[in-house]
């Protein structure tokens, strides 16, 4: 397609205009978030609609980092999100592979059940889950969060992985298996490298889902030292006032790990392009 673009400058201009549009749409609200975080409290309302604040302060960041427990919440969130992403992707890759490569009794039923788990509002099952976890003595534990998050993310991650496996011709691994590889060897040597973009995307989704999950973290964790970051954000909204500056500063900080994570998995997302398997 790039050949087409090179031939027609109008198309190229339209393309860059579209890119700029997407960028502005994605970044403007984030810019506003940062703006509020660096605007001194006294100016938040008086200069509400100005694009640039007349003076800038980093107090909010300093307060969030030094005076609150946010760094601890960060650690907790990172632990939970990485743990969830790793476990979910492994489990889902196995399940997705089974769905993609086998026909077996109960397959449709399993798919239907997985879908149904996504259809019922979590609100209605939070009470039973709380009871079960409380009886197991696992309240206030980050491990329980990883288990719950993993369970809820498996269906989507499985469907995602299944589609990626579906996209990889069976002939490849079968050829490898004919050559004497075991299924695992075939998976590892042939299929795995091809699913890297899929694995990357899945890891990314599960990580961000766990990173910003609020309901379970709120309900299952009451102890301050096991709180995750989104619950910590809620504490800036008290009954009588909202500490906008600090909350937005904490929010900006929250974007950093996700950003880094995306840049990291990016290599795998664009891998298809660079490896030359696909031409743009």
């Amino acid at each position: 397609m790039s050949a087409v673009l090179r031939r027609r400058p109008a198309v190229a201009i339209a393309k860059y205009a579209a890119l700029a549009g997407y960028l502005a749409f994605a970044l403007f609200p984030l810019y506003w978030l940062i703006k509020i975080a660096i605007t001194p409290d006294a100016l938040i309302y008086t200069e509400g609609t100005q694009l640039l604040p007349s003076s800038v302060t980093f107090d909010n960041f300093a307060k969030v980092i030094l005076q609150t427990d946010f760094m601890a919440y960060f650690g907790n969130s990172l632990y939970v999100s990485l743990g969830t992403a790793a476990v979910t992707t492994l489990v889902a890759a196995a399940a997705g592979y089974a769905f993609s490569r086998f026909d077996f009794a109960g397959k449709k039923l399993l798919i239907a059940v997985m879908l149904i788990t996504q259809m019922f509002p979590l609100l209605m099952i939070i009470a039973p889950i709380y009871k079960i976890i409380s009886q197991m003595g696992m309240l206030n534990s980050l491990t329980s969060l990883i288990v719950v998050y993993t369970a809820f993310n498996i269906p989507f991650a499985t469907f995602l992985m299944q589609s990626f496996f579906d996209g990889i011709p069976k002939d490849l691994e079968e050829a490898a298996m004919m050559d004497g590889c075991s299924r695992f060897q075939a998976l590892y040597k042939v299929v795995f490298p091809l699913t890297l973009p899929g694995l990357g995307a899945t890891l990314g989704f599960v990580f961000t889902a766990a990173w910003s999950e609020l309901l379970f973290a709120l309900m299952l964790i009451s102890k301050n030292d096991a709180m995750t970051f989104p619950v910590g954000l809620l504490t800036f909204v008290s009954k009588f006032s909202v500490d906008w500056g600090q909350m937005m500063a904490a929010g900006v900080l929250a974007l950093v790990p996700s950003c880094l994570f995306f840049i990291f998995i990016q290599r795998y997302l664009v891998q298809g392009l660079t490896s030359g398997a696909v031409k743009g």
Partner: peptide, 19 residues
């Protein structure tokens, strides 16, 4: 310390869950 915005739901769930 429960965040006020969801304190009611959280406390009710805690009490109902035996905690």
């Amino acid at each position: 310390s429960l965040p006020w915005g969801s304190a009611f739901e959280k406390l009710a769930t805690m009490v109902a869950g035996g905690d």
